[in-house]
Design a protein around this nucleic acid. Structure first.
Lengths: 169, 169
DNA sequence: ATAATAAATGTATATATTTGCAAAAGTAAT
DNA sequence: ATTACTTTTGCAAATATATACATTTATTAT
């Protein structure tokens, strides 16, 4: 009961932060926002209470950059955005492929790939450094995906959907 | 003589700005800089005198963004950087190819491509919006490249080399 | 449980960046 | 050359963002 309480507490609190980061990420990805105050308001609407200072840290943590935009002056952008649409293509010139399936169990994700593809796909995942995933281990046709504490299956799947369009829809 | 003087004048002055932008672009591309004051010093060393306000405008014009960096906190980054290395791959999944040659004449650039490739390659050029190039016109196997006033052939060629590695070396 | 340690956050402030406005410089037309 | 128009730039002020420090909240070890 005592230990259980601690764990519960941890989950409750940590989830709030991870959720906040997820929501922040989603906002930055889907909307054109040009200041932290603006972001702050949007986060408030979603039910997150925080100060500009914390937001600044969150943005840094998520590696969110600020770039010039034709319409809004400056907007925030996730790392690799714009690159994302081309990410399904691997650097070596071969189209990203080999993905077979994704399942979750015991708090972990298991991605199945075509034989021999696990290494390169895991490498691709690592390179994009989705914050929902703290690490991967690849065999020959299987990748073990370790989610960050508090990251939901959906959050992990969504992060992976950036790389593997098959996961969408 | 009178007209000539005006033209000379224009070239002299405009070149200064275009050159400055080129140098700025080069600095941002090759060094990790984390503030405009820092950039200002580097530009001064290269012989360019300007205020921080102008630099801010230059950065906006060049679409230079600022992103978090592990070592230096925040650094400036050119649009599409990091994407550049993957740019030789087209969105449709086919490797970027079809480039044949590049020549200059009458202040214009002429790029030859494989038959039928001009459109897609010109589109790729337009999408990266190199500031040295104000526009392109594509036929079937030829692209007309219109450089910005004051942009040297080298500057244009370098900008294009980002997309067409064949142009390097 | 308590004390010690580490992590997250807010407050206030320092830094950094953008922008309105006016002046200077460049261009075009008469 | 003079005038009208456009572009570029600096100055100063407004905004926006990062960070040192203190405080609270969580985690670990005893």
């Amino acid at each position: 009961m005592y230990i259980f309480a601690k764990v519960m507490y941890k989950n409750t609190i940590m989830k709030t932060k991870v959720q906040r980061l997820s929501v922040l990420k989603k906002i930055v990805k889907t909307e054109k926002v040009s200041s932290q105050d603006e972001l702050l308001k949007k986060l408030k609407k979603e039910g997150y209470q925080l100060t500009q200072a914390t937001l600044s840290r969150d943005l840094k943590y998520l590696r969110v950059g600020k770039i010039p935009d034709d319409r809004k002056g400056y907007i925030y952008k996730l790392p690799g955005e714009g690159k994302d649409q081309e990410i399904p293509v691997m650097t070596n010139g071969f189209p990203m492929s080999g993905f077979v399936s994704l399942e979750f169990g015991s708090g972990l994700g298991i991605m199945k790939t075509l034989p021999g593809y696990a290494g390169s796909l895991a490498s691709a995942i690592d390179q994009t450094r989705p914050f929902e995933i703290i690490g991967t281990v690849a065999g020959d046709d299987t990748i073990l995906i370790v989610p960050r504490d508090g990251a939901s299956r959906n959050a992990v799947a969504n992060a992976l959907a950036e790389l593997f369009p098959l996961l969408r829809g």
